[in-house]
Amino acid sequence: MNNVVAYIRVSTSRQGDSGLGLEAQREYIERAAIQNGWSVIAEFVDVVSGKQALEDRPAGKKALAMCKEHDAMLLVAKLDRLSRSVLHIAQLMEKVDFKVATMPQADKFQLHLFAALAQQEREFIAQRTKDALAALQRRADAGESEAVAKVSRRTQALEKGRAVADITAANNVRMEKVTSFQAAVKPHIEACLYNKLTTLQAVADCLNAKGIRTPRGSEFNPTAVRRLMQALDLSFNKAA
């Protein structure tokens, strides 16, 4: 039985490109493993753009290392989960053996051909879209009312998309700060609990005495301690 390392990628903007989310990819991989007698020894998930090479992605790098360590193949649901670049696919073939769940019998030559055809089609679509938008803009510039309306709707959609992207990016930054703060404070709370403190106020006093402050720079109070302990899954009973 061949060992395989499952690799799943979803985009940064939504659950998955082309409707292929985490669970769908996992189902493809599990089905292919069963049908071909492969043993999945690990799974790695990236939330990154497909433009990055696999070795430049956090989980992708770990997946490659796992394949090398255990002499295993890399298994993905679809070829574009690895990359949309023919160059990246070709370079990856030199580093690891990989299989695609939707075409498990495809060899390296066939996979390279599929990648080249897919890239060519994307380039054709991009050029056709560019030409169509240019023609639409020319009609709008000429005063054609229907074209003006279409350009206006497209502009509004783009602006809305940018706004959503900005909000998402801001939320991601905020969550990273929260996670970093919690990780930094956790050892201090555990130390306070280790000293057999049994009330939220006592823990707050302990943190304040250490000079630890909330993300807003305020001293801790019982409510802030309770929320933080819940977020970190800490309790007085567990400490005991």
Results as ranks from 00 to 15, higher is better:
Gln25Ile: 08
Ala106Pro: 05
Lys150Phe: 00
Leu79Asp: 07
Leu74Tyr: 04
Ala53Trp: 08
Glu123Trp: 04
Gly16Leu: 07
Val100Ile: 15
Glu176Leu: 09
Gly16Ala: 11
Val203Glu: 00
Gln137Tyr: 01
Phe44Cys: 10
Glu176Val: 06
Thr223Leu: 04
Ala183Lys: 15
Val151Gln: 08
Ala147Asn: 03
Gly211Pro: 09
Leu54Asn: 02
Lys51Ile: 00
Ala106Arg: 08
Asn2Thr: 13
Arg139Cys: 09
Glu23Thr: 11
His70Ile: 06
Arg153Ala: 14
Val86Glu: 07
Met66His: 11
Leu197His: 13
Arg227Gln: 09
Phe181Ile: 03
Tyr7Ala: 06
Ala163Gly: 06
Val76Trp: 11
Cys192Trp: 01
Phe220Thr: 01
Asp233Tyr: 01
Val203Asp: 07
Lys130Pro: 00
Phe114Asp: 12
Thr198Trp: 03
Gly211Asn: 09
Thr198Met: 05
Ala6Met: 11
Leu207Tyr: 03
Arg81Ser: 05
Ile8Trp: 03
Gly50Tyr: 01
Asp97Cys: 07
Glu121Gln: 13
Gln201Val: 05
Val225Cys: 02
Thr214Asp: 07
Lys95Ile: 09
Lys95His: 13
Ser11Thr: 13
Glu55Val: 08
Leu136Asn: 12
Ala163Ser: 10
Asp17Cys: 04
Ser83Met: 04
Leu87Ala: 14
Ile212Trp: 01
Met175Phe: 02
Asp107Thr: 12
Gln35Tyr: 03
Glu121Ile: 06
Ala157Ile: 11
Gln91Asp: 14
Leu228Val: 01
Glu219Lys: 15
Asn2Glu: 10
Glu69Asn: 12
Lys160Cys: 01
Val164Tyr: 11
Lys62Ile: 03
His112Phe: 09
Ser13Arg: 15
Ala6Pro: 14
Lys210Thr: 02
Ile212Asp: 05
Gln137His: 13
Ala59Gln: 15
Ile8Glu: 13
Met66Ser: 14
Ala140Gln: 00
Leu133Lys: 13
Asp141Ala: 13
Ile8Ala: 07
Arg162Glu: 12
